[in-house]
Amino acid sequence: MTIALLGTGLLGSAIATRLLACGERLTVWNRNPERGQPLVALGAQWASSAAEAAAEAEWLITVLNDGPTTQAVLIDQVGAALQGRRVLQMGTIGPAESQQLADAVAGLGGAYLEAPVLGSRPEALEGRLQLMAGGPAELMEEALPLLRQLSQEPVHLGPVGTAMTTKLALNQLIASLTHAFSLSLHLVQQGGVAVEPFMALLRSSALYAPTFDKKLQRELSGDYGNPNFPTAHLRKDLDLFISAAQQAGLNSEGLSGLAALLQRSSAAGLDGLDYCALHQLTAGQTAAARPE
């Protein structure tokens, strides 16, 4: 296969590294050329524009920041070069945005499959992403040899929009579980309860989720560097979930406080840090007085 990948951020670069390790011919492009150089060193070809990257590719993978950016790159920059191309859109965007993008790609003669993933850099490098796809069943079949290099069991959920809906539902749980655990951890520490007895009780209960232990040491030490999924992306995805929920007629008022809390992450310097840095935001004014 000849593959072009647009967007070499944290996830995109890991996906590209995995594909190169699998022996695929890969061309990469990023708005910041420096972010593509490690992949060039691994054997990727560098394209000076998104259209140039797409020109010879059978498959075009996008892993870009958001819906508007993906629309601008695919439709405005690649444009007519989408003729005959098959697009795997792996960035997390809104279901309605994805449907609009699929229509625009089809209007330019291309085919579109949304393929967001659960997992981050470590899982991508090992081909263990949980990949969900939305789009035509026949296109899913064509994509399977490629998708199976990234995911052991890619799941086709239905038409365009279904995979993005599922991805947002899962990422809402990331935000809500992290927020809930952070508050509980702060409260028990403020109350003079040792962390390990609290965790032992939690682990043996139906309330436990593995993500609590996964983020515990980061939250205890305040070390949020080297993120696989930064706080800014969590905020963006939660906002997308709330928008999709409202469009579906659901009552998402319970998430408004968390969304407002995450809006403070930019001013607090947390946007580029691991998403569990929201633990700093939940600490409020009592953080300095917290018992060790």
Score class of each variant (00 low, 15 high):
Gln45Phe: 10
Leu177Trp: 13
Ala81Val: 12
Pro38Ser: 06
Glu34Leu: 13
Gly94Cys: 02
Ile61Glu: 01
Pro116Phe: 05
Arg128Cys: 12
Glu24Trp: 03
Glu292Thr: 09
Glu141Phe: 07
Leu10Pro: 02
Asp239Gly: 10
Ile174Leu: 15
Ala44Leu: 08
Pro136Lys: 14
Ala57Val: 10
Asn171Tyr: 02
Arg290Tyr: 07
Ala277Asn: 10
Met90Lys: 04
Ile93Gln: 12
Gly272Ser: 15
Thr70Glu: 09
Arg235Lys: 13
Ala169Cys: 14
His279Arg: 02
Leu187Glu: 14
Cys22Lys: 14
Leu26Cys: 11
Asp239Met: 07
Gly36Ala: 06
Tyr224Val: 08
Gly94Met: 04
Phe229Glu: 11
Gln189Lys: 10
Leu261Gly: 02
Ala288Trp: 12
Thr2Phe: 06
Gln83Ser: 15
Ser266Thr: 13
Arg35Leu: 05
Thr8Trp: 05
Leu101Lys: 01
Gly284Pro: 14
Ile242Pro: 00
Gln172Pro: 00
Leu113Trp: 02
Val188Tyr: 02
Val28Asn: 10
Leu39Ala: 10
Arg128Glu: 15
Leu6Val: 11
Met140Glu: 06
Leu261Ala: 01
Ala209Cys: 05
Gly254Met: 07
Ala80Glu: 14
Asn171Phe: 00
Leu270Arg: 09
Ala102Asn: 11
Gly135Glu: 04
Pro159Lys: 10
Tyr208Phe: 14
Ser13Asn: 06
Leu108Val: 05
Met132Ser: 11
Ala277Arg: 05
Ile61Asp: 03
Ser48Val: 11
Gly119Leu: 12
Asp274Phe: 00
Ala194Arg: 04
Gln71Val: 08
Gln149Trp: 07
Arg18Asn: 00
Leu258Asp: 04
Leu240Trp: 00
Asn65Trp: 14
Gly36Met: 09
Leu118Ser: 15
Ala245Tyr: 00
Gln100Asn: 14
Ser205Val: 04
Trp29Ile: 08
Thr286Ile: 08
